[in-house]
Design a binder for these strands. Sequence first.
DNA 1: CCAGGTCAAGGGAGT
DNA 2: ACTCCCTTGACCTGG
Length: 292
Amino acid sequence: MELGYACINLSLPDKTTNRTMRLATFKKQGLPYASKLALANVQDLVSIIEWNEQNNIRLFRMSSNIFPWQSAYELEELPDYLEIRATLEKAGALAAKYGHRITTHPGPYNVLSSPNKNVVDRTLRDLRDHAIIMDIMGLSNTPYNKINIHVGGVYGDKTKALETWCRNFELLPANVKSRLTIENDDKLSAFTTQDLLYIHKNTGIPIVFDYHHHSLNTGGLSEQEALEIACSTWGDITPACHVSEPRDTQNPRAHHDYILKKINTYNKNIDIVLECKKKDVALLHYRSLHNS
DNA sequence: CCAGGTCAAGGGAGT
DNA sequence: ACTCCCTTGACCTGG
């Protein structure tokens, strides 16, 4: 089992892969500035991977903000493209050398279940953009290096939304399809682990089990039952799961700073991304609590 | 330099 | 109608 964290390293305050800009700035400064930010982001990605190795962390979710306004251009158009590409290749080579599992989690605006063509088109573009970065890094074309998303909207008819999702899945390029995974939701109206089996059966892609989301939307399954269903969809690849704790009772969906409770893996070999505000600090804290 | 207001995107829930 | 929440707070302006 590997423990990992998401997107931000708090132990390296000067290193970030999230430099971005607002639309007004992008319009004013354009590709040269986007290029400058992206180059700094990928350089810091290398530093974070090195730090992860030094701290025995071999699972890491990359930020989706490495390239500001990526949907507005092709990477080759960036003035620093060659250096950016070389740096990404270096980051990927380091991850390979150290045996790190690198994943991504594109945002909630990726909605393959949408009845709106523009929304689906933007989703196809964003997912493609994630795959391009992962390709440059030389990450595997499998869910070991997952591109993980949620289903999206229900629109009052879960079955129909799932059908739409599967239909739109077929529009994705091969380098996305081969990496894509689907995660259970935390809202009662949305998709449970059981619901996601429909997608797995129709597309073959694995299910990412989120412990916290499950606790808010069990679909009548126990934690162990749902985890085992999700794990059964992964074949030879170590299943990836997400763990977080609620911020407080008023805000049960928001994430807590740390993970306090010991995670029950039910004797399964799974990799776990911790989702909490304190990131890498919380991971080291969890290890100190539970000696894992 | 810092605090505070503002910021692309979809959808749903709470106020 | 507005705010918060999710994959992740970061940007930018005015003082």
